[in-house]
Computed example of a mutant assay.
Amino acid sequence: MSQIRVQKLSKQIERDVTDIIMNEIKDTKVGFVTVTGAEVTSDLSFCKIYYSVLGGENRREAATKALLRAKGFIRSELGKRMSTRKVPDLIFEIDESIEYGNKIDMMLADLRRQGKM
């Protein structure tokens, strides 16, 4: 499959999974999840869904468990929305780049307050 088609499909899956999580899943633990990206393999067998969770470590663990429980439902709903014959297997991975960026922002703010910048 062409790289452009795979990229378009990744973006469509990202939008659809976000919509499914926000509107279809009733588990309150998933309410703190934000889908930040999706990467589909070229043979459409797997799709990594990157997500972040607001809150502390406890919310992250609860949201991860809730997503894993809802994985089959999300995949079946995704299959209804996709125009391909094959629905990729979903792999959920935490995107820690937002937390990393916030940590760097806090460090820079501390340096500014101390007058070192």
Rank of each mutant, 00 (worst) to 15 (best):
residue 6 V to D: 13
residue 7 Q to R: 14
residue 7 Q to F: 02
residue 8 K to S: 12
residue 8 K to H: 14
residue 8 K to C: 04
residue 9 L to D: 04
residue 10 S to F: 00
residue 10 S to I: 00
residue 10 S to E: 02
residue 11 K to N: 15
residue 11 K to P: 13
residue 11 K to Q: 14
residue 12 Q to K: 12
residue 12 Q to N: 11
residue 14 E to D: 05
residue 15 R to L: 02
residue 15 R to E: 03
residue 16 D to G: 04
residue 17 V to W: 00
residue 18 T to E: 11
residue 20 I to W: 08
residue 21 I to L: 09
residue 22 M to Y: 04
residue 22 M to P: 03
residue 22 M to F: 08
residue 24 E to R: 11
residue 26 K to R: 13
residue 26 K to N: 14
residue 27 D to E: 07
residue 28 T to R: 15
residue 28 T to P: 15
residue 30 V to Q: 14
residue 31 G to D: 14
residue 33 V to N: 15
residue 34 T to Q: 11
residue 34 T to G: 15
residue 34 T to C: 11
residue 35 V to Q: 08
residue 35 V to L: 06
residue 35 V to N: 11
residue 37 G to R: 10
residue 40 V to D: 04
residue 41 T to Y: 00
residue 42 S to A: 10
residue 42 S to D: 12
residue 42 S to I: 03
residue 43 D to V: 10
residue 43 D to Q: 04
residue 45 S to V: 05
residue 46 F to H: 14
residue 46 F to C: 07
residue 47 C to P: 13
residue 47 C to D: 12
residue 48 K to N: 13
residue 48 K to P: 11
residue 48 K to F: 00
residue 49 I to F: 05
residue 50 Y to S: 13
residue 50 Y to W: 10
residue 50 Y to P: 14
residue 51 Y to Q: 11
residue 51 Y to T: 11
residue 51 Y to V: 03
residue 52 S to M: 07
residue 52 S to A: 06
residue 53 V to H: 06
residue 53 V to N: 10
residue 54 L to T: 05
residue 56 G to T: 07
residue 58 N to W: 01
residue 60 R to F: 02
residue 62 A to F: 00
residue 62 A to Y: 01
residue 64 T to Y: 08
residue 65 K to R: 09
residue 65 K to W: 04
residue 67 L to T: 01
residue 68 L to I: 10
residue 70 A to I: 00
residue 71 K to F: 01
residue 71 K to G: 03
residue 75 R to A: 02
residue 76 S to I: 12
residue 77 E to M: 06
residue 77 E to Y: 04
residue 77 E to F: 01
residue 79 G to V: 01
